[in-house]
Design a protein around this nucleic acid. Structure first.
Lengths: 111, 111
DNA sequence: GAAAAATACATAAGATTCTTATGTATTTTT
DNA sequence: AAAAATACATAAGAATCTTATGTATTTTTC
């Protein structure tokens, strides 16, 4: 597998929030798998960014946690709070306008 | 004027390189004006990011500087080096693939 | 059945890139 | 004459990442 592509800083939590909005609840490792799958293996979230990111979302009240034991191994499932759903919409809108601005500036077509 | 939109970190130097590729030479303040113009005032580069960014591009050998005096005021014009032109293409390509990946992950249409 | 890979979490040090604040000075507009 | 725009700069601190390391279980492969 190639080394991680650089995530443009700031997009990680938006990704997490959007995936949680679609899947209802997910655990960290599952998120990394999902991102790899959706990008055909091109993008790998690093654990050093993912887990602190999830902790921050929790501290900010955007997600809640529920633990589940699978055999002897634990999983921490994350779900969006009501605030988290709103914030997800805000960040998606922000990201869209960022993309629009980048198109204007760089004069490129995306997709 | 509204407060600065957040630039997604990492995109600033790509913007600078692309504008320099189109304009041949520009000075810092001119770059901020151009970005404002292209985004209809929605995006303002902050000086605290712009000038250090230009200095770093120079230190990395991607741009060269030529001074010009306009009356009693100086301008520092920046131009792409050969390496800078290559790097600009690399970063644009990287950014495009990042956008593509974000589309895949977030399931959004851009533009 | 032993070794390797995958699963599943975590944290810490350091790098990078930004924001905010501040500073200097000239020129143009009001 | 005062305010806004032009034109540069740097420093402190915040935010977000990378890289490295650690622990432990489960599944796959040889």
């Amino acid at each position: 597998m190639p080394p991680n592509s650089n995530l443009y800083k700031g997009s990680l939590t938006t990704i997490i929030l959007k995936l949680l909005a679609e899947q209802d609840k997910m655990y960290g490792y599952e998120i990394t798998k999902k991102v790899k799958e959706l990008t055909n293996g091109q993008l790998s979230l690093t654990e050093g960014a993912l887990y602190p990111g999830l902790h921050k979302l929790e501290a900010d009240g955007l997600v809640t946690v529920s633990m589940e034991n699978i055999g002897n191994r634990m999983r921490k499932y994350y779900s969006l709070t009501k605030t988290g759903k709103k914030e997800m919409k805000n960040r998606l809108a922000e990201l869209q306008s960022f993309f629009q601005q980048m198109e204007n500036i760089l004069n490129i077509k995306i997709a």
